[in-house]
């Protein structure tokens, strides 16, 4: 194909997708930006009000706390999975990977419903505790419930970057360390773990990005104190009908994710997720 011909074909083929993204994605997002500084004339009141709003500042802090703690909890479960997967022969690994993908393709409402059943006052966990004579614990409509629910959602996003960085390590490296007399624990702490850090960073950033915007899990598994930014946007949009405030919060959320996305694109492990290398 000639250069000009290619350009014409590309323009024609990109037309429907670009029209869709412009008309139904970029313009509405620009609308949010516009609404955040309009009430009804041009104003920065929305943002000014947010900096002094106790509710907003509390929700912002809660969002950080929940995102950080659920990403950490996710890491604790995702790393062993990735490590385990990396050691399996390819066929078995492919099979186990489908287990990791199950939550990815399960409706968030199925998961939320299941967790209300599992974690509730008379749920599966508390029934087992009561049956074994232990005191029951409150796992639902509080921070614990939100972290469990979000961790479950985030695990696949953390497993794959870590797995990639584990599989990228040449097996000879561990062999060499063993030949030179290093024990298994030492090889793990001094070779495997440090070399997997880019994957851990990428997975952690990705899970922070996704956590910041969570809506369903905090609404269904959390209590009133676990409201996150997305829930506040919903409240201002549909209950208070204050679209300027709702838009200002959404803009702040967009900017926070933008910063994290920029950080993610700088880590090598993030490439696969952002559609780069592969």
């Amino acid at each position: 194909m000639t250069g000009a011909g290619q350009g014409r074909v590309a323009a024609l083929f990109l037309l429907p997708a670009m029209a869709l993204m412009t008309g139904i994605f970029l313009v509405p997002l620009a609308g949010v930006a516009h609404q955040s500084v309009t009430n009804p004339a041009w104003t920065l009141d929305g943002y000014v009000e947010l900096t002094t709003s106790k509710l907003f500042l509390r929700v912002l802090w809660t969002t950080f706390e929940i995102s950080l703690s659920s990403s950490l909890a996710t890491l604790l479960l995702a790393y062993p999975i990735a490590y385990h997967l990396a050691k399996q022969p390819p066929r078995r690994r492919a099979l186990l990977m489908t287990l990791v993908m199950v939550p990815f393709w399960t409706s968030i409402l199925v998961k939320s419903y299941a967790f209300t059943v599992i974690l509730g006052q008379h749920g599966a966990v508390n029934s087992i505790l009561a049956w074994s004579g232990l005191p029951t614990v409150k796992l639902l409509f509080n921070r614990v419930g939100v972290i469990i629910g979000m961790g479950h959602y985030l695990i696949p996003f953390m497993v794959f970057p870590i797995l990639n960085s584990l599989l990228a390590q040449p097996p000879d490296l561990a062999k060499a360390a063993r030949v030179m007399g290093a024990g298994k624990a030492r090889i793990f702490w001094r070779v495997t773990l440090p070399l997997s850090m880019p994957g851990v960073m990428a997975g952690f950033l990705l899970s922070m990005i996704l956590s910041l915007g969570f809506f369903v899990t905090p609404a269904l598994l959390g209590g009133r104190k676990d409201m996150m930014m997305a829930n506040l946007v919903d409240m201002y949009t549909r209950e208070t009908l204050d679209w300027t405030m709702a838009s200002a919060i959404a803009m702040i959320l967009l900017m926070l994710s933008g910063v994290l996305i920029a950080a993610l694109s700088r880590t090598g492990g993030g490439k696969g997720i952002l559609g780069g290398a592969h």
């Binding site: 290619q6 590309a10 609308g31």
Partner: peptide, 27 residues
Amino acid sequence: CEFPGKKLVGVILLSPILVPIIAVALG
């Protein structure tokens, strides 16, 4: 195809994956 602005077009088309869904919903 090769064309100018290819990278930007790619980023725009894939961006809904990483933009917080609540912002899109409000928009």
